[in-house]
Write a protein that binds this DNA or RNA. Structure first.
Lengths: 132, 132
DNA sequence: GGCGATTTACTCGGATAAGCATTGTCCGAGTCAGAAGGG
DNA sequence: CCCTTCTGACTCGGACAATGCTTATCCGAGTAAATCGCC
């Protein structure tokens, strides 16, 4: 399991937002400055989190981002899948390889098991637990 | 767990080689023809498997590829790591993100656990089991 | 001074380039089988 | 007929492009606060 930059940014951005006491929205540039993340890129990632129902956004001068659900109801899996898409186990050249269907099914099963384990692992950890 | 094309080719190529009864080397073009894989690309992948001590190669007119160890001593993990490099759990922007060290360690732990599980999973399955 | 229209500064939002890994291709080095030729 | 030599075709091997995805950036749409003018 290797988390890409985008996903890593996403996790820590959500963490930062969840840690805010105030109910005011947190603005992108504040997160970017704190972690040294390129602002425009971060915004793009935050938008994906909004689409995936992890965050809510507000426009305008006092706008920003807020948690949609509470920190204890938001899991790391939610964040990761929002950015990378669903974690699914599959092999790439499924169509090219003809025959060897038995072996193919076994290998696909392995991938699925790995993906399933990873999903359950990430689902167990909430943002609340990350805060501590 | 998503296996790239190269890795998938590698698994089925090794499977094909292991299935050969004769002790003669199997030639690349035979595998490529059987599975519809681009020959030159397959050769490149097979070379990686040779470097990783999974296969042995022989040049010349009667050359080709053979298993280095027996099918029951060669695991899917050996093949996958030969092509993709070692399966390790890590986050990408480790340096960029400053602070939040507690959360960082937790997330890194998740990645390691996922990687460890996947490794053990792939290690359990030998090429012999794929043949059936 | 109070109220409202306007400006303005700031936000998010989606479309657009740059960098890098994966995938795919080409030509050269090496090696053995088999033909050619002489004994 | 048999052995040696040589040729040639076929192999793997490593260096060289094309493609696709991740990463990064830019400019436009939207919103509320602050400003300015009028009453």
């Amino acid at each position: 399991m290797r988390l890409g930059k985008a996903t890593t940014y996403a996790v820590f951005a959500v963490l930062y937002i969840a840690q805010q006491k105030k109910s005011k929205p947190v603005q992108g540039h504040e997160i970017a400055r704190n972690y040294g993340i390129p602002l425009e890129y971060l915004l793009k990632i935050l938008q994906q989190l909004v689409k995936a129902q992890v965050l809510i956004s507000e426009r305008g001068r006092t706008g920003g981002f807020q948690m949609r659900k509470s920190a204890s109801q938001t899991t790391v899996l939610d964040i990761v899948e929002a950015v990378e898409g669903p974690i699914t186990g599959e092999i790439s050249a499924r169509r090219e390889i003809t025959g060897a269907s038995r072996a193919k099914k076994i290998v696909e099963g392995l991938c699925r098991d790995s993906a399933g384990f990873t999903r359950s692992l990430l689902k167990k950890v909430t943002v609340q637990k990350l805060i501590g």
